[in-house]
């Protein structure tokens, strides 16, 4: 059995986050102070290859991206579910392996379904 990690083991991660936050905030602050500030109206418009800006970017975009995001949530949960099994699978022998293959088979069925439905086709 491997050693259990207690809350103390996670403390250095907080330290590293503190150092990183300090670095980011400090740099942002310094660059804000020493950079020149000569703002004009043209500088503050969005850059669209030098052409007059039409509308703004808060508009609908292709549904495909949303579909990919939803499928990601489904499959990533399955992946996370497999982690504990993968770490301990030697103890389960053939039975555990076959059970997991059945689970992965159902996962694959869903995968084949979304491919047949052309959910992942970009045209």
């Amino acid at each position: 059995m491997e050693a259990q990690s207690s809350a103390v083991n996670y403390l250095p991660i907080i330290f590293q986050m503190l150092v990183a936050i300090g670095f980011v905030v400090g740099t942002m602050f310094v660059t804000h102070l020493i950079g020149p500030k000569r703002k004009t109206k043209d500088k503050l418009t969005p850059f669209e290859s030098g052409i007059e800006v039409v509308g703004n970017a808060r508009q609908p975009f292709s549904i495909k991206y949303f579909l990919v995001a939803i499928l990601f949530v489904l499959f990533d949960v399955e992946v996370i579910f497999m982690y504990p099994w993968a770490v301990n699978f030697r103890e389960f022998g053939w039975q555990g392996l076959i059970e997991m293959f059945i689970f992965m088979g159902t996962l694959l069925l869903g995968f084949i379904y979304i491919i047949k439905k052309r959910a992942l086709d970009w045209d």
Binding site: P46, E48, N56, A57, F61, Y65, V68, A69, F72
Partner: peptide, 19 residues
Amino acid sequence: SNNKFSLMGAIRAASQNIS
């Protein structure tokens, strides 16, 4: 950024990374 190029780049990045 409220820029169309930035938005497209960002959603491309997001769906590529999660895939």
